[in-house]
Write a protein that binds this DNA or RNA. Structure first.
Length: 829
RNA sequence: GCGGGAGUGCCGGAGUGGUCAAACGGGUCAGCCUUAGGAGCUGAUAGCUUAGUGCUUACAUAGGUUCGAAUCCUAUCUCCCGCACCA
């Protein structure tokens, strides 16, 4: 019962300050002179369930930094907004027979209220919501600009289709063959005509500039892998009378090709299938389609002969062409040359279908016997049985063979990327309408800029298919060019389009004439510190980088990279050990925690258990400790009496300056947990000594980023009229830091420890003592004397200090002879 | 399979060549205060040993480098995360 009574005390206080901050616009961030600092958290998708402790943790991390930077004297831009378009709102609305608009706006309201309760120092006047026409009209605007520039295009191709989303997905949204939102739903491949953004135009820059970013290595590696650059050779094989290009990184093994494999999903597969083989191939295709999800992971390599033969361009040998389930259709050209001697997958396939294995590379230090090998040799070595290319290092052979092919116009050196163009069409309602009209006469026609925004109509029927198609007023339009009958594009944009530039809109969120004023963006951008989870490594973070580069080339911005520094805060796990999420049902709500302990306690606790970049499991086991500390601080300042000036304690002064220095460094490096330890430590020292008002204020300032509400309250209580939120962060005076004091403390600790140890032994022997005699070096006498109170308190003994050379000291057992510098003789009685 | 990260005391976790039996918090135990305490304060919390000492064993496991390792190297095991039949 007792534990829960923190709420009334702190709730009122929190509310009071939150209101004052808002009323006085303490966190407004106008442009101006002085250094700017842009702290940004990935804006949330406003889900109906509101935010939980995991979000609170994320935002607390940013808020602490923002508050620190503000006090440091920077002009801090710290905004919040909502990624409010998207499928979940649409689905939830359908389920609850509501409208996504209604659903979303109430969710946002709820989010804002919750975030305000956490005490986050956002400049709310800069709010951005992507579902508002004032925002998404600029999506449409940018889309048209991209189209003009050739960065947006429409193409029919195999696309990922999620049957549960009822929509296509970008490659980045397909995870292990499943939909990112529906992890139990297999993504299907469909041939559709869709809108793409040419992210591949920037593939080289996206790859190159990753290295220069101050981002976690992990994220950088993930992006690089996603882009997946590999060097190789494109080689034409003749099948029938047609040339079929394939991609390989191992041109050196071309003499070892014994068959070819084309992807079973290859769009032109049937061209290769002879009449005789048709039946067999069809059966095979049917079979691999029915493979369940589970089997996908351990799938055996399977295939079927197509009936065709391919001519090896170097050897002129004819090898059979198989259709196989292990060849990826959309990488390279969807067909591979198979070299079972030097590729394990090909080897397995060859063994299964009785195809021959040829060794054309042999290791330098041992022999390979074609007949006896049990696996492919994938390493480097010397080429053998390779005609004019025999007897050379295989790496060299790659060059030679490629060169030979280039000369004969049968192939060329190429680079392959895994990255594909970004598919942005979605067959769903709750998103930005794509500003395009299809005219029978004129074809694809852009909506003129001055007609923007194309407003997403309210009235649609949800059910099967794309809801926008049910609103005829929306669909049926006049062609902007010929004024004839035309049909509006009903696909909407991927919401990652929205989140690709929201950070720019914060800089000038109310601009009605343009997406943002160049001047303002120049002032604030790039983002100095971006904070968010790692799950966006290959999604949002990649798209946003691409967008920035595209906008740069369109003349909208001047910089290359949007986010200079990225910090991945750890995931907060629920009490059950799993990542906290509504769907798992293990969420802990900030309101509940705040009610029990107060928000400052919760904030303090969240960032003090572990380093903020590590995953943490939520448990209230330790929160009592934070509450105790907050209570102690409150108590201390309630009865605070400053010493009159002149009574400055050098020791405290040293400690304070050291703490300022270290806490500043810790905060700047997200070592909040360590900063808090040092703040607590300082507090312990301060509460033992006499402290001036200035010193007390420094303590409050150090604590403020973590516990903004109580520090405002106490700041006011000790006589300040302004806000501590915008007070100046203390500067450490390093000349005042004296390590001698620390040593003194250590000596004192050691002595107290020794005394307690003796006491313990006394107790075991059932002896008792009430007096402590310390025999110290003459020059140390004052140090011990000044710490007498401390010693008495912590040992519970009446203490008398003698210098070893005091003549009339009480020393019946001659313990004074044991004394050394920093280590007094001890006698108990 | 590839890539990234991690394994520390009863627990959460600091610490990345000596100042380490290891910060800080939690828990537990003991003492004080007290009518009582779930509040506060003090101490203890690897083992043995001792009037404040000394020793042994410890930072996943096994080796190694070093005057010296939780910290560096090698191998192994375990866990987490990302990618995954990319030719």
């Amino acid at each position: 019962m007792k534990k829960t009574d923190a709420r009334p005390k702190y709730a009122l206080l929190e509310e009071k300050w939150q209101k004052r901050w808002e009323k006085k616009k303490v966190f407004a961030s106008p442009e101006g002179k002085g250094k700017k600092y842009y702290v940004l958290e990935m804006f949330p998708y406003p889900s109906g369930s509101g935010l939980h402790m995991g979000h609170a943790f994320n935002y607390a991390v940013g808020d602490i930094l923002a508050r620190y930077m503000r006090m440091k004297g920077h002009r801090v831009l710290y905004p919040m907004g909502y990624d409010s378009f998207g499928l979940p709102a649409e689905n939830a609305a359908i389920k609850e027979k509501s409208h996504p608009m209604k659903f979303t706006e109430s969710a946002i309201k709820n989010f804002i209220a919750q975030q305000k309760k956490i005490g986050l120092s956002y400049d709310w006047s800069r709010i951005v919501m992507t579902h508002k026409p004032e925002y998404y009209r600029w999506n449409q605007f940018f889309f048209l600009k991209f189209l003009e520039k050739g960065l947006a295009y429409r193409k029919k191709s195999s696309v990922n289709w999620c049957p549960k989303c009822d929509s296509v997905l970008a490659n980045e949204q397909v995870i292990k063959g499943k939909c990112w939102r529906h992890t139990d739903t297999n993504v299907e491949i469909r041939q559709l005509e869709q809108w793409f953004l040419k992210i591949t135009d920037y593939v080289e820059e996206l790859l190159d500039k990753v290295d220069g970013l101050d981002w976690p290595e992990k994220i950088k590696t993930m992006q690089k892998n996603w882009i997946g650059k590999s060097y190789g050779t494109e080689i034409d094989f003749e099948i029938g009378n047609e040339r079929w290009p394939i991609f390989t990184t191992r041109a050196d093994t071309i003499y070892g090709v014994t068959f070819m494999v084309v992807s079973a999903q290859h769009p032109s597969l049937m061209k290769l299938v002879t009449d005789k083989q048709k039946k067999e191939v069809m059966e095979f295709l049917k079979k691999i389609k029915s493979v369940s999800e589970k089997e996908m992971e351990t799938l055996e390599k399977e295939g079927v002969f197509t009936g065709s033969y391919a001519k090896n361009p170097v050897t002129n040998e004819k090898v059979p062409v198989y259709a196989g389930n292990f060849v990826v259709s959309d990488y390279g050209s969807g067909m591979v040359m198979a070299v079972p001697g030097h590729d394990q997958r090909d080897y397995e396939f060859a063994k299964k279908y009785g195809l021959s294995v040829k060794v054309v590379i042999k290791p330098e230090d041992y022999e390979l016997d074609e007949e006896k090998i049990t696996e492919a040799y994938e390493g480097d070595g010397i080429t053998v049985s390779s005609g004019q290319f025999s007897d050379m290092k295989n790496r060299k052979a790659i060059e030679k063979i490629t060169h030979y092919l280039e000369k004969k116009k049968l192939g060329n050196k190429t680079v392959q990327y895994r990255l594909k163009d970004w598919l942005i069409s979605r067959q769903r309602y709750w998103g930005t309408p794509i500003p395009i009209v299809y005219c029978d006469k004129c074809g694809i026609v852009s909506v003129p800029e001055k007609e923007l925004p194309i407003i997403l109509p309210d009235k649609v029927k949800f059910g099967k298919g794309n809801p926008l198609e049910t609103n005829m007023e929306f669909v049926n339009v006049k062609c902007p060019k010929c004024k004839g009958k035309a049909r509006r594009e009903t696909d909407t944009m991927d919401t990652f389009f929205d989140s690709s530039w929201y950070y720019l809109r914060y800089c000038d969120n109310e601009n009605r004439k343009e997406p943002f004023a160049r001047k303002k963006v120049d002032y604030w951008m790039p983002v100095d510190q971006y904070i968010g989870g790692a799950e966006h490594a290959c999604l949002h973070l990649l798209y946003a980088r691409f967008f920035t580069k595209a906008l740069r080339d369109l003349g909208f911005v001047e910089f290359d990279e949007p986010f200079l520094k990225l910090f991945n805060q750890g995931m907060l796990h629920g009490p059950d050990g799993f990542v906290m999420s509504k769907s798992r049902g293990n969420v802990v709500l900030p309101e509940v925690v705040s009610e029990k302990y107060g928000m400052d306690t919760a904030r303090l606790f969240l960032v003090s258990t572990a380093s903020t970049d590590k995953d943490t499991e939520w448990s209230e086991n330790g929160i009592e400790g934070s509450l105790k500390f907050v209570n102690k601080v409150m108590g201390y300042f309630t009865g605070f009496k400053a010493t009159k000036s002149g009574g400055v304690d050098k020791k405290i002064e040293s400690k304070i300056n050291k703490t300022i220095k270290e806490v500043s460094e810790d905060v700047e490096n997200f070592r909040y947990n360590l900063a808090i330890i040092k703040i607590r430590n300082l507090f312990d020292k301060m509460s033992e000594e006499k402290v001036s008002r200035k010193e007390a204020e420094i303590f409050l300032k150090l604590l403020h980023p973590f516990c903004p509400h109580i520090t405002e309250e106490l700041w006011e209580k000790i006589g300040n009229k302004s806000f501590i939120s915008i007070a100046k962060w203390p500067e450490a005076d390093e000349s005042k830091i004296n390590i001698e004091y620390e040593k003194e403390d250590e000596v004192m600790e050691k002595t107290i420890g020794d005394v307690n140890n003796v006491l313990k032994i006394f107790k075991e022997k059932e002896k008792s003592a009430s007096k402590l005699y310390l025999y110290v070096m003459p020059n140390e006498k004052t140090i011990y004397a000044s710490n007498l109170g401390e010693i008495e308190k912590r040992t519970g003994l009446k203490t008398i200090v003698f210098a070893v050379n005091d003549k009339d000291k009480h020393d019946p057992e001659k313990k004074s002879s044991k004394a050394k510098p920093g280590k007094p003789g001890i006698y108990l009685e």
